[in-house]
Design a protein around this nucleic acid. Structure first.
Lengths: 263, 263
DNA sequence: TCTTATTGTATTCTTTTGACACAATAAAAT
DNA sequence: ATTTTATTGTGTCAAAAGAATACAATAAGA
């Protein structure tokens, strides 16, 4: 763990004065790749632990805006479906979390080159955090660690590392929220590339819901929503009938959002 | 607007030091009376405006606990269904709200007898607030104003006064949340007395959903859930067939919560 | 040409929903 | 004592939605 460049520390400490104290935002940024749901995580420099990408809210900034800023900074993505799902306000959010292996936050921060008492205090006070979730096309995102992180990577939901603080709980709540939400929002839009097969879409729904769906009934239900446009066939080279490609018809989102899909 | 007793001001200012800055909770406490949904509101002493019962979070207190404390202090009720639904984090939450008719908060606070600069500052800084909603039996609640309020009353949702800050928006969001939630939770439990007729329950659902439901289909749907126990008949004295009374079977909640009801 | 795996669609049966019908009944009116 | 009235519990029936299965069509390999 090398010390940070002095300039980064100074820059942060200058910003810090403009942050709203005691409140943060955390983003559960989900993507879909190789038939797996993945979440974007940061690896701390402080010690060996992963966390959700998060940030603080400027005093002059709307909270939603802060969440969008975090999303943009970690992925480069803009104008994305991003929704608040829950705020986490336990006094001791750190309890039952990944341990820091004996090292105090203070010690780790010293190693990174932090010196100001206010900065130590900032990271040791209680924060209420508001969770947001986003669904993004992994191919379009460009993961970017922040100055406190050594890595920013997609991790499959089925083999997650231990996360700091209550971030595992936050992530679980986000997934739960997503499973409810999938009945009301055309989620495929954000998670899949522009053109996709019916099988792609079904696998995505299965990944989100965590259970298999019946193929022909799934196809019938989705098509009846009339939000997909059938494109050319996909000649995959496999020894079987070629599936059609579909894309979403953006004009028809609204009626779908109102009506809802039920699986 | 008479000045407050000095002791109340001192007591608040002593508490204030122990509050988590920049964050509050607001409770949308709903009740049901005369076939109307009602919400518990406080009338400010500061100036002529109503607000949702709210409060601050102690530094040593979980946020959920703070919301329960507010509920208890305003209604005397304990161990009630109370759920977070959204956090409101706009920088200028006060915009588009009920005006203070030209008087500044500072001036009104002076009249009430506040003097400390920190207290003025407290009420003038930005707060993120987390909204909770509760469903209570009006007959059991005992509305109790706090020291900054002149009144604490149930107001029917269809004839609401203008509320301070963004409290109208908070209330709307709570109702929206409730309408979604009613499909998954046996809400009648909290809003109705122990024994009720099928008509009572239907009227409640209609009040929440804001639309009429077909009587016989409603009855069939509710009964099939198998969460009601049929009790004795209610001899109301009306010139017609007497309806049965029902009560909720607490043992069967869980399966209902999982399965959900759809109207 | 035959085989194989997958796809698009149809069929069948069951369940759910919405609209309406109707007998049962508590008490008031006659 | 009988009729009337309003409301309740239950039944029916057609339409819609859902689950399970069947089957022909088809791209490419054998």
């Amino acid at each position: 763990m090398d010390p940070l460049p002095k300039s980064q520390i100074v820059a942060f400490e200058e910003q810090m004065e403009h942050f709203l104290p005691n409140h943060s935002v955390d983003c559960v940024i989900l993507g879909y790749e190789n038939q797996l749901l993945k979440v974007l995580l940061l690896k701390w420099k402080m010690y060996d632990a992963w966390c959700l990408p998060g940030g603080f809210i400027f005093k002059y900034e709307d909270m939603d805006k802060a969440a969008h800023r975090v999303l943009k900074e970690r992925t480069g993505l803009d104008k994305i479906f991003l929704e608040q799902f829950h705020s986490f306000g336990k006094q001791k959010r750190a309890e039952h979390a990944a341990s820091d292996e004996g090292r105090s936050i203070r010690e780790s921060m010293s190693r990174l080159g932090f010196t100001k008492a206010e900065t130590f205090k900032w990271f040791n006070t209680r924060f209420v955090t508001t969770g947001y979730f986003a669904l993004v096309d992994i191919a379009k995102a460009q993961p970017q660690p922040d100055f406190l992180s050594a890595a920013c990577e997609w991790k499959a939901l089925n083999e997650l590392p231990k996360l700091v603080l209550d971030h595992n709980e936050i992530l679980e709540k986000a997934i739960h929220h997503l499973r409810l939400k999938i009945n009301h929002v055309p989620l495929g839009v954000s998670l899949l590339p522009k053109k996709f097969t019916m099988q792609d879409l079904q696998k995505l729904y299965e990944a989100i819901l965590g259970r298999p769906l019946e193929r022909s009934n799934f196809q019938r239900k989705i098509l009846k929503l009339e939000v997909l446009v059938r494109m050319e066939k996909l000649m995959s080279g496999a020894a079987n009938k070629a599936p059609y490609l579909y894309s979403f018809d953006k004009k028809k989102y609204n009626h779908l959002i109102k009506a809802g899909i039920g699986f």
